[in-house]
């Protein structure tokens, strides 16, 4: 798109002046911390060294945390994408009152993650939670939920999926609205059924949206923190000890600031990769 210009001769310095505040704040509160953590990760006792990372990758707690984070993302992100796509397909019609359903599905998004975590921890509480009362009533029996090392991660995923799907649904809905109605018309004339239309027209055309959602969702899930801080404390037995929480715990609970920063640097590398991909995708669209 061609850029419109006004008075570019008279005010050569004006645009820089207008940018200055944002640039200054970005430099101090975003760029500086990124570079600072990148550089401090390569310092060990005052010298340039890879020692911090050597130690980090020999540490079984960190390795566990890395694996937990990766595993969580591998399960949670695809699950959220598929479910939010299904939600979007369900509400993408002109039925009377469908707007109310859309709002209801979006409602969990407006609740903050800490509040959602608190509510889930109490509903799924081992001792007095209403979920266990209900499960007992139908004969399934008391479950450990966040206290059970086999179930804790599943419960975290349940919480995040409950909270996240409405958000991604909106992206898919926007994508669905962008599909030309004529394509569906043509498919109908050809006698294509719902599922063949879905797999041959809708899904291929939602490729861009899905990619975007996948990348954006991964970057959010990668930095998940509140449920671990508020419910599981990384446990039981480290099964929910994601990197973000481990970094926080090292720095603020054990006072091991260097280790916390080193873990943060690993996270920043991950996020930067994701951000680059995201950026390329946005640039493509422009």
């Amino acid at each position: 798109m061609q850029q419109r210009t006004i008075r570019d001769k008279r005010d050569r310095f004006l645009p820089y002046l207008l940018l200055l505040p944002v640039l200054a704040f970005a430099a101090v509160f975003k760029l500086y911390p990124i570079f600072y953590s990148a550089i401090s990760g390569f310092h060990y006792k005052g010298n340039w060294s890879l020692r911090t990372y050597q130690l980090l990758f020999q540490d079984s707690v960190f390795i566990n945390s890395l694996l937990v984070t990766i595993r969580m993302n591998l399960i949670m992100t695809p699950l959220q994408i598929v479910l939010s796509l299904i939600l979007a397909l369900m509400v993408n019609n002109t039925m009377k009152g469908i707007g109310a359903f859309r709002s209801v599905f979006y409602l969990p998004v407006t609740i903050s993650m800490p509040v959602a975590a608190i509510c889930f921890s109490m509903i799924l509480s081992y001792n007095n939670g209403v979920a266990n009362t209900m499960l007992n009533a139908i004969g399934i029996g008391t479950q450990g939920f966040f206290n059970d090392k086999g179930q804790a991660m599943a419960c975290v995923i349940l919480l995040c999926t409950w909270k996240g799907c409405g958000y991604w649904m909106m992206f898919f809905l926007a994508g669905l609205k962008g599909i030309d109605e004529a394509l569906y018309e043509a498919a109908r004339v050809d006698g294509a059924g719902y599922f063949s239309t879905l797999f041959h027209i809708t899904l291929p055309l939602l490729r861009r949206t899905s990619l975007f959602v996948m990348v954006a969702d991964t970057s959010i899930n990668l930095l998940l923190f509140a449920p671990m801080k508020l419910i599981t404390d990384g446990g039981p037995r480290g099964t929910t000890d994601v990197l973000m929480y481990e970094a926080y715990r090292q720095a603020f609970k054990y006072g091991n600031y260097n280790k916390g920063s080193a873990i943060t640097s690993v996270l920043i590398v991950f996020t930067l990769l994701i951000v680059m991909i995201q950026f390329r995708m946005m640039a493509d669209r422009d």
Binding site: V28, K30, P33, S37, S40, L223, V275
Partner: peptide, 18 residues
């Protein structure tokens, strides 16, 4: 844009030091 796309959580620790 790139700078701002790095989520605040990722840089919370170095930012805290600052």
């Amino acid at each position: 844009l790139l700078t701002f796309m790095v989520p605040g959580e990722a840089i919370a620790l170095p930012l805290y030091q600052l």
